[in-house]
Nucleic acid binder design. Structure first.
Length: 426
RNA sequence: GUGGGAGUAGCUCAACUGGCUAGAGCACCAGAUUGUGGCUCUGGUGGCUGCGGGUUCAAGCCCCGUCUCUCACCCCA
């Protein structure tokens, strides 16, 4: 088969290679540790869901639902299932399905896993991408909003990413938002001519999106528009102010951004985004907010919720652009066994198995290569120790354990090798 | 889906206004060193120049198509 005929990974779905895994695992283990500090528990919903879940959750008129979902017919009945484009709806579905809120009224759940959106890939955006997310389900209290934002910020601190800015806004409840929608339309209507074609389309489709358009002319118009903040009803306003006060008291710097709106229909009140300036046009590393009506909309009881999702791809990009990415790969083995001659390979193999049974990470040569080639492999592998095994060692039952960094050797019986490796480095 | 840029060895890149057998560094393999890796030196493997067509005496280079990657738009983590 010629090179051009070879099968390659689907567009926008790259392999995570061994060299990528140190960083990926760093993010995942840090997330698990930090989320545990706030008593979050892990949940792992399926990658596919009934298509209707996303249509109802994310919103029928969103781009994701309209054109970015991987949807398949399932079974004889022709049911429609979809690879999840995000996980909040899945988590909520699971909570409802398993009657969690009847067991206790408040849950903190986190997930780590791949999402799928059929978009054109660009910097920081892929078709399959990992998200790390938290959902606090069953409370409408501003304390939970604040904790959620602080938790997201803490995650980025702990992974060693500096330069993250936190933007927050309140988009109100459905009642004050629909009032604001009309006010915004009224304010923008006379200036339609100044807007870009996309924004003229947004006017009917989702007028709030005009607020975060990147076209300079639209920005100018948006700046003059009345902010949401002035249209919040008293409850929403009080909620937002409490959240801001809690953040401030916790020493968390945030920027209130009147023009921060989020794409999904389910968001209410607090919305937030964490972004990094080293990134390109797609600079968000985390997005989230409150969604007080989703549980009820999906058939559960009334239950307020707050959550966020960290984008693993942009986070890694941001780390790589700073200094935080310098994480040397851990060696894959502690000890390399080199065979001096071919007639002892079987003995080497036996010793390797014995030591693995004693918990030592052992690698050896399987290709009958020269001693020198084997030592080169040991070095490349980063193994801390090596043992050269020949007829003398087999006959005498004593092995010379060589520390690669120093060249120092010590003579040991087979049973003493594993304990010696576990001893503190000399 | 729309627009810009780019595709040469495993990787990073050369190859003059179109002109000899497409080169280098790194990596890989081996030797210098017959019981020991790194450093050094020497040698070697590795290319349908993404793919298909066209122009030309001659194409890695020009033209068309196509695919892939990439950046941006829409949207979004």
């Amino acid at each position: 088969m010629s090179k051009s005929e070879r099968i390659t990974a689907p567009r926008g779905m790259p392999d995570a290679l061994p060299s990528d895994m140190t960083l990926l695992r760093h993010l995942e283990t840090t997330a698990r540790r930090v989320f545990a500090l706030c008593a979050y528990e892990e949940i792992r919903p399926p990658l596919f869901e009934d298509t209707r879940l996303f249509v109802r959750g994310i919103g029928e008129a969103t781009d994701i639902v309209e054109k970015e979902m991987y949807t398949f017919a399932e079974g004889d009945a022709g049911d429609s299932i979809t690879l999840r484009p995000e996980a909040t709806a899945s988590v909520v579905r699971a909570v409802i399905e398993h009657e969690f809120l009847k067991q206790k009224g408040f849950w903190k759940l986190y997930y780590i896993g791949p999402m799928f959106r059929k978009e054109r890939p660009q910097a920081g955006r892929l078709r399959q991408f990992d998200q790390i997310g938290c959902e606090a389900i069953g409370s409408s209290e501003p304390l939970v909003d604040a904790e959620s934002i602080l938790l997201a910020a803490r995650f980025f601190r702990e992974i060693g990413l500096a330069g993250v800015t936190v933007k927050v806004n309140s988009i109100g409840c459905p009642t004050c938002r629909s009032a604001y929608r009309e006010a915004l339309r009224a304010a923008l209507a006379p200036r339609m001519g100044e807007l870009c074609p996309d924004c003229r389309n947004r006017f009917d489709r989702n007028v709030f999106r005009i607020l975060d358009c990147k076209v300079p002319a639209c920005k100018a118009v948006a700046l003059a528009a009345p902010p949401m903040r002035e249209h919040l009803d008293p409850d929403c306003k009080a909620h937002f102010e409490t959240v801001l006060a809690l953040l401030s008291q916790s020493g968390q710097t945030v920027a209130v951004d009147d023009h921060l709106v989020r794409g999904f229909d389910y968001y209410t009140r607090t919305v937030f985004e964490l972004s990094h300036s080293a990134l390109g046009a797609r600079d968000a590393v985390c997005g989230g907010g409150r969604y007080d009506n989703l549980v009820a909309e999906l058939g559960g009881p009334a239950a307020g919720c707050v959550g966020f999702a960290v984008g693993v791809v942009p986070t890694i990009l941001a780390l790589q652009k700073g200094q935080g990415a310098a994480r040397p790969a851990a060696p894959a083995a502690d000890l390399y066994l080199a065979a001096f001659s071919d007639d002892v390979r079987a003995e080497v193999f036996r010793l390797a198995e014995r030591l693995r049974g004693e918990g030592v990470r052992v690698e050896m040569d399987y290709e009958r290569r020269s001693l020198k080639a084997q030592m080169r492999s040991a070095n490349k592998l980063g193994a801390r120790y090596a043992i050269v095994i020949g007829p003398d060692e087999i006959a005498g039952g004593e092995f010379k354990l060589k520390e690669m960094a120093t060249g120092v050797e010590q003579r040991l019986k087979a049973e003493a090798i594993a304990p010696a490796l576990r001893a503190p480095t000399t």
